[in-house]
Structures are given as structure tokens and as C-alpha cells.
Design a protein around this nucleic acid. Structure first.
Length: 331
DNA sequence: TAGGCCATCTGGTCCT
DNA sequence: AGGACCAGATGGCCTA
């Protein structure tokens, strides 16, 4: 299912991939970080001294029964022993740094495969993990359901438990109205004021805004105030008419992995020739002129005018009639 | 300025 | 003994 470009195979299969990170071979960013922190040598030296002293003092604090030991004259470490201890500590620190760098690298690779990735507005570690968990959960649910996914439920699951800024970010990535995916304090997704369908599938002049079972009137009570997030409409084509006052984050890089809706959600790595070189994942926006993939392939055709920001395309070989698809979407 | 996030240091524990 | 892993402490940076 995950047809990802695991372009960092060492990240995926090496159990302790960060363990042997030689300091000399740190990635540029990490090396920069290392140099940045090398600006604090004075403190480190001082801490080393202190830790050595404390280490000595703690050595004989308690006996094997936890009772305080009698403190005799402390054995003074020789200069050689102190040096050796210092050296060991420094080596351990370096290893720990490398380990953490490896951990962060793995986290960074995770960031790139969850459905919301921005170079400029990185998800925090905890939010990355939460989103990843939600993503796995949503995919599992989709699989276990054995039917075509409900896009709305999928996104709701995705945003469960995420902080407001992250919800905004995800909504921004998916070009959805964040207000409709707010989560309450329990992590439950709320729909204050409007039907979620309103936001995602707006059909001006039609009465398709509120599908059965999604009456907005029942949701008003959950309304709460929101941080400024001003999509002027429920949905705006991302490339053609971005709202100038939009609170949507600015994305200058790859936004998220591709999500292809072909009955199930799936990740798919496919580098389209004309979409952003250097990006790992081919998120396709279909609002740009000349991009017609959605019109031909999307199972979630919204309307001829309103183009969903994602190219929700399907694999032709497994794709059934467009009418059936649209039917399942609008049921 | 408080709070969130992060990198790093550190000592303890477990494992080889 | 030494390395990996972990969690607590600390300080820096950034933002609301």
C-alpha cells in the first residue's frame, strides 16, 4: 500500500541507524547545529568539571541496602583518571548527540510522509507523531471498512487530537476550511456552525450543501471562537485565487505526500515531470490552468467549476465508472 | 514575558 | 567495560 520513495533506506531498516553517526559525516543542517552548539564550550567545560565532582561525591552515597554509607576520605581521582572520565563523558555526549540526530532524521522522514508537509512550517515532533498515528488509523479504518473512503471522515480522523495550529496546517495542506475541522479539548472534531460538507463541497445555488445526516442546525451549539482563519469561501482554488488575508500557512515546498483515492487511500510516489523538481512527493493541485487530471480521473468529482485542490486521482486499472464513483461520493 | 519547542548534557539502567 | 537507551535538567530561540 505504501508505495513510498524510501529514499533513505538506511533509515528504514537499520535498527539503530543513528548509532554510528560519525560526527564528521553529519548532514549539513546537523553539522550546522553542531557548530551552533559548539558556541557553548565554556558551559560544557564547567559542567564537565561539576559532573566530575558530583560523580565523585555520589560514588559512595548509599550502600546496597539504600542506607547512607559512612563517608570515609574520598578517593581522589588522579589526573589521568579525571581526564579519562572526562573523555568518556565527552564521547558519550557525542554518541548521544548522534543518536538524537538520527532520531530527528527519522522524524523528518516521517514528516515527509504524513499528509502535511511544509519546509517552512514544520510540524512539531509531537504533532508529527500524532498526525502519523491518525494517518495510520485512518488508513486502517479505510481498509477495514472495505469500501470507498469517506473523505470527510478521513480528514476528521486525520485532525483528531491535533492542536489548532496543526489543524490549520493540515487544513491548509488539504485546502479545507479549518473551522470545520476544529477539535475540542477531548480531541473530538467539531463542526461549529456549518456542515462540514458545506466547506468541502460547496455548490452555490444548489441544495447539496447539507447531505442527509449533516444538518448544520444541530451543530451550532458546539460553536466556539476561532483564531483568524479567513478562507473567504468554503474552498478556494489554491493557485488561482488565494485569499490575501488567508491565515493559511505559506508553503514553499512540497506540501504532503500524494493521496490517491482509488477506492482506498494510498500513498503513491510518482514524480510527475512538471511538478516541482526536487520534491519527493507529487502532490497534485488541479486548480492550476492546464491541469486536467482531476477532471478525467477523480473519483471525487465535485463540480465542473469547483476543483478540489488535490488531484485525487485513481489508478485507471482499478477504477470503475465515474458515475459510480460520484455516486459513492455523494451518497 | 510566559510558554512551547528544541538540542544538549547527564547519570542511571540494561545489554552484549 | 563500553555502548545504547532513557528520562530529567537546563538553557536558547521563537512567538503570541
Amino acid at each position: 500500500m505504501l508505495t513510498l520513495p524510501f529514499d533513505e533506506p538506511h533509515m528504514m531498516c537499520e535498527p539503530r541507524f543513528g548509532a554510528d553517526y560519525p560526527r564528521d559525516s553529519l548532514p549539513e543542517s546537523l553539522e550546522h547545529e553542531r557548530q551552533r552548539n559548539a558556541d557553548r564550550p565554556v558551559m560544557r567545560e564547567a559542567e564537565d568539571d561539576i559532573s566530575d565532582r558530583e560523580e565523585d561525591e555520589r560514588d559512595d552515597d548509599q550502600d546496597e541496602e539504600g542506607l547512607p554509607k559512612k563517608r570515609g576520605p574520598r578517593k581522589k581521582k588522579s589526573g589521568k583518571e579525571q581526564d579519562r572520565s572526562k573523555l568518556r563523558r565527552m564521547e558519550a555526549n557525542a554518541r548521544e548527540r548522534s543518536r538524537m540526530h538520527g532520531l530527528n532524521a527519522a522524524l523528518e522522514s516521517l514528516r515527509k510522509v504524513v499528509p502535511c508537509y511544509s519546509k517552512t512550517q514544520k510540524l512539531s515532533k509531537i504533532e508529527t507523531l500524532r498526525l502519523a498515528k491518525n494517518y495510520i488509523w485512518a488508513l486502517s479504518e479505510t481498509l477495514s471498512a472495505g469500501k470507498r473512503p469517506d473523505l470527510l471522515a478521513f480528514v476528521q480522523t486525520l485532525c483528531k487530537g491535533l492542536s489548532q495550529p496543526t489543524t490549520n496546517l493540515v487544513a491548509g495542506c488539504l485546502q479545507l476550511n479549518a473551522r470545520n475541522f476544529l477539535t475540542d479539548q477531548n480531541g473530538e472534531v467539531m463542526f461549529p456552525g456549518r456542515s462540514p460538507y458545506d466547506a468541502m463541497y460547496s455548490y452555490p445555488g444548489t441544495d447539496m450543501n447539507t447531505p442527509p445526516g449533516h444538518s448544520s442546525s444541530t451543530l451550532d451549539s458546539g460553536a466556539k471562537t476561532f483564531r483568524h482563519y479567513s478562507y473567504s469561501g468554503a474552498y478556494e482554488p489554491y493557485f488561482e485565487n488565494p485569499s490575501p488575508e488567508s491565515g493559511s500557512p505559506h508553503f514553499d515546498g512540497q506540501l504532503s505526500p500524494p493521496m490517491n483515492f482509488n477506492g482506498i487511500f494510498s500513498l503513491k510516489h510518482e514524480e510527475p515531470p512538471d511538478y516541482g523538481k526536487g520534491s519527493h512527493y507529487g502532490v497534485r493541485y488541479c486548480g492550476a490552468p492546464g491541469r486536467t487530471a482531476l477532471a478525467h480521473n477523480s473519483m471525487y468529482r465535485v463540480s465542473p467549476e469547483a476543483r478540489f485542490p488535490y488531484d485525487l486521482h485513481v489508478r485507471s486499472q482499478s477504477f470503475q465508472a465515474q458515475g459510480e464513483v460520484n455516486g459513492s461520493f455523494h451518497n
